[in-house]
Simulated assay, not measured.
Amino acid sequence: MRKLAFLLFAFSFFCSCIPSKDLVYLQGEPLSKKEIHRINNIPYKLQVNDIIIIDIKAADSKLVALFNKKQANGANQEAQNGGGYFSGFTVDAHGNIRVPYIGEINVLGYTTKEVRLKIEGELAKLFKKAEDIFVSVKLDGIRYTIFGEVANPGPKVLYQNKVSIIDAISNAGDIALTGDKKKVEVLRLSLGGRKKFLIDLTKIEALDSEVFYIEPNDYINVIPLKQKSWGTGTTGLQSLTTIISVFTLVTSTILLVRGL
C-alpha cells in the first residue's frame, strides 16, 4: 500500500510539473547559412484598414503644407497621442486612400515602394519641378493582436519596420508558465486568404520559420499547457503542495471511515 502510494505520488508529481526544457526559448545550435530565406524578405502588400504615413518634402514649404496632414492648433493631447490614426492615411474598404489635391489612389495589394512611385507620378502631373520633391511612404507601425497565455493580451502596435514573433510576445509581457511555447499559433489574414501556422519557439529552427517575422494584422494565440487544466500547479512546489493536500484528505477520510 505504501509502495503504491509512493508510486502514485511520484507519477503525479513529475507529470504535473512543467519541464525546464519547455520554458527556454530557441534551444539548439544555429546552422550557418549563406542565404537568407526569400519568404522573410518579400515586401508586405497593403490591406484594408492599414495605415500609412506619407511624408512629402520640398524646398517650397507652402507646397509641402498642401499635402502633409497636420494637427490643428486646438487639437487635444489625446489626438496627438493617436499618431498615425489621425495624421496617416487609412486604406478604405475599396482599397483607396485620399491624398489632398491628388484625390483617391488605389493602394490595395501594393507595397509602400509602389505607392511612393504612384504618388510621385501624380505629383509630376501637377508640378513642373516634381523631381525636386522628396516622397517617403511607410507603414504606421506593425499592428497585431495577441491572446491566450500571455501577461498582457490584446491589440498591440510596434513602431518598427520588421517585428519578430519574439518581439511581439515580449511586448505583451512574455508567455506565462502555463503557456505552450512549442505550439504558438499565428493566424494570418492576407490577400490570398486566411492561413494558420504553428511555430515551436523552444527550437532554434524557429528562426527559419515563415512566421518568425510577423505581418501587420496577424493574430498570435498562445495555447495553454495541459498542466493548467489539471490544476495541479505549474512548479514543483505548487504540485507538491497540491498532492500533499489531496493525499492528506484521502488519508483522513480512510481513517475516519475505519474509526466509524
Rank of each mutant, 00 (worst) to 15 (best):
M1V: 09
K3G: 05
A10I: 14
A10M: 12
F14G: 08
C15T: 13
L23S: 15
L26E: 13
Q27P: 00
E29H: 09
L31E: 14
H37R: 11
I39F: 13
I39A: 12
I42A: 01
Q47H: 05
Q47A: 08
I53F: 05
I54W: 02
I56Y: 02
I56K: 00
K57V: 07
D60R: 07
K62M: 10
K70M: 07
N76Y: 10
Q77A: 13
N81W: 08
N81H: 07
F86Y: 11
H94M: 10
I102A: 06
N106F: 08
T111Y: 08
E122Y: 07
E122D: 11
K125P: 00
I133H: 03
Y144T: 01
Y144S: 07
G148C: 00
P153I: 08
Y159L: 12
V163K: 04
I166H: 07
D167Q: 09
D167K: 01
A172Q: 06
G173F: 01
A176W: 06
D180I: 09
K181R: 15
K182V: 05
K183S: 08
R188H: 10
G192N: 11
G192E: 13
G193M: 09
K196D: 09
F197R: 03
T202E: 04
I204V: 13
I204P: 01
L207P: 00
L207C: 02
Y213E: 05
I214G: 05
E215Q: 12
P216R: 05
I220S: 04
V222T: 03
V222P: 11
L225Q: 14
L225K: 15
K226V: 14
G236T: 09
L237K: 12
Q238E: 15
S239L: 01
L240N: 09
T241Y: 15
T242S: 14
T242R: 13
V250E: 10
